[in-house]
C-alpha cells in the first residue's frame, strides 16, 4: 500500500478575480500553494477544508479540467500535464470524478442508459451486448437495482440520491483505478449519504479503487478515510492518519476545525482547543503563515513574516506550524488532566 499512485510536486494555482468597472480591484486568489502530496494505492484519502481552501481546485487539476500555474502531477510516475491526444484519452479511462451537485452533473436530455453508455462509446469498449452487461453490473454496484427499473429513466424523474448514484455509476463504468469524489454527499440527506459511503467503501475493498474524497465534513472524512489532509487557503497545513488528526492534532487550524464540529454521539475529540481568534478582521494576506490572522496562538514576528513548511512531527504525521509541537503538548496535557488520566 505504501507505493503512491499519485504524486504532486510543488503545485501552484492562482486565480485572478474580475475587477471592477475600470478593471481595477483585481485580486489574486491563491487556490493552491506549493502542494506536495502523495496518495497511496488503494487508500481513501480525505482532503478537508472550508470553501475557498482550494480543495476542489486540487481535484480539477488532477483530472486535467484545469492546468496549474506550475508544478508536477505524476500518476503512476507518468507526468500527466504533458499528456496529449491518445495518451490523454487513456489517462482519462484511469481517473474519474464525481461532482457535488447531482442536479447539475447529469445532462437532463439524456436517459440513464445514454449517460452510462457514453463513456463506453467514447473509449470504444465492448459490443452492444457487452456494454449492456457492464451497465447492469455497474448499476448494481451503486445500488440502482434492479437496473431495468432505472435504465430508461431521465434524470428529472430521479431523486437526488438516485441521481448521485447514476453519477457514481458513470464514473465507475470504465472501472477507473482512481476516483475523485468532490463533496459527493454534501447536498444529500444523512440516510442517503450513509448509503453512498458504503458504496465507496465497497469500491475500495472489492475493486481496489483509490479514492480522493474531497469534503468539508470532518465526521464523514473520519468515517471514510484512511488518511486526511487539511487544507487552508491553498496550503496543506496538516496531514496524517485520520484517527490521529482527530485525537492528536498539531496544527491550530485543525484544532479550530475540530472545535467547530458539532459534538454528537460519542466523540473522541479530546478537548476544547480554543485556538481560534474570536474577533478578527479579514484583510490583506500576510507574508507568513496563512492562518496567522485567525490564530490565537500566533507569535507576532515569526508567524507574520515567515512561511512555515510541512514537517514530520510523528511518523506519517505532518504539520506546518512553527509552534505545533509546543501547542500540541500543552493541549494534550490539559486534555489528559481533564480526562483524569
Amino acid at each position: 500500500m505504501e507505493r503512491p499512485i499519485l504524486k504532486t510536486r510543488a503545485l501552484y494555482k492562482t486565480y485572478l478575480t474580475k475587477g471592477g468597472f475600470f478593471g481595477g480591484g483585481k485580486k489574486r486568489i491563491v487556490a493552491l500553494h506549493d502542494l506536495n502530496l502523495d496518495i497511496f494505492r488503494g487508500e481513501i484519502f480525505g482532503l478537508v477544508g472550508e470553501s475557498g481552501s482550494g480543495k476542489s481546485t486540487f481535484g480539477r487539476l488532477i483530472i486535467r479540467l484545469e492546468d496549474p500555474d506550475k508544478g508536477e502531477i505524476l500518476f503512476e510516475d507518468m507526468d500527466i500535464l504533458r499528456l496529449r491526444g491518445d495518451r490523454l484519452r487513456s489517462f482519462r479511462r484511469e481517473v474519474q470524478i464525481i461532482f457535488q451537485d447531482p442536479y447539475q452533473s447529469l445532462n437532463p436530455y439524456l436517459s440513464v442508459e445514454d449517460i452510462l453508455k457514453e463513456p463506453l462509446q467514447i473509449h470504444k469498449v465492448g459490443d452492444k451486448k457487452e456494454r449492456m452487461e457492464i451497465l447492469e453490473e455497474t448499476m448494481s454496484m451503486v445500488g440502482l437495482v434492479p437496473p431495468s427499473a432505472y435504465i430508461k429513466a431521465y434524470t428529472h424523474q430521479l431523486s437526488g440520491g438516485q441521481r448521485q448514484r447514476v453519477a457514481i455509476a458513470r464514473a465507475m463504468v470504465l472501472r477507473p483505478r482512481f476516483l475523485i469524489a468532490d463533496e459527493p454527499t454534501s447536498m444529500l440527506d444523512a440516510s442517503i449519504s450513509a448509503q453512498l459511503f458504503d458504496i465507496f467503501l465497497n469500491f475500495k475493498e472489492t475493486y481496489g479503487v483509490t479514492i480522493l474524497f474531497i469534503t468539508h465534513n470532518l465526521s464523514a472524512a473520519n468515517y471514510l478515510c484512511d488518511r486526511v489532509g487539511v487544507l487552508y487557503k491553498g496550503h496543506l497545513v496538516e496531514l496524517g492518519r485520520s484517527q490521529e488528526i482527530l485525537t492528536r492534532p498539531y496544527h491550530p487550524y485543525t484544532m479550530a476545525l475540530l472545535d467547530a464540529v458539532p459534538k454528537f454521539g460519542r466523540c473522541d475529540i479530546p478537548t476544547e482547543f480554543g485556538t481560534l481568534q474570536r474577533q478578527f478582521e479579514g484583510g490583506d494576506e500576510s507574508l507568513g503563515c496563512p492562518f496567522f490572522k485567525r490564530c490565537q496562538r500566533a507569535k507576532m514576528v515569526r508567524c507574520s513574516n515567515e512561511l512555515p513548511v510541512l514537517l514530520e512531527v510523528e511518523p506519517g504525521h505532518f504539520s506546518s506550524c512553527f509552534y505545533g509541537e509546543e501547542i500540541h503538548k500543552e493541549v494534550m496535557e490539559s486534555a489528559a488532566c481533564r480526562l483524569g488520566i
Binding site: S159, A194, L218, N222, F264
Partner: peptide, 22 residues
C-alpha cells in the same frame, strides 16, 4: 437516522444506512 450519521470516533462502527428513499 442516528445510526446513519458518521461520528468523530476513532473506532468506526459501520453506519447503518436506511434503505430506500424518503
Amino acid at each position: 437516522l442516528l445510526e446513519s450519521y458518521p461520528t468523530l470516533t476513532v473506532e468506526r462502527r459501520r453506519l447503518r444506512p436506511i434503505p430506500g428513499d424518503p
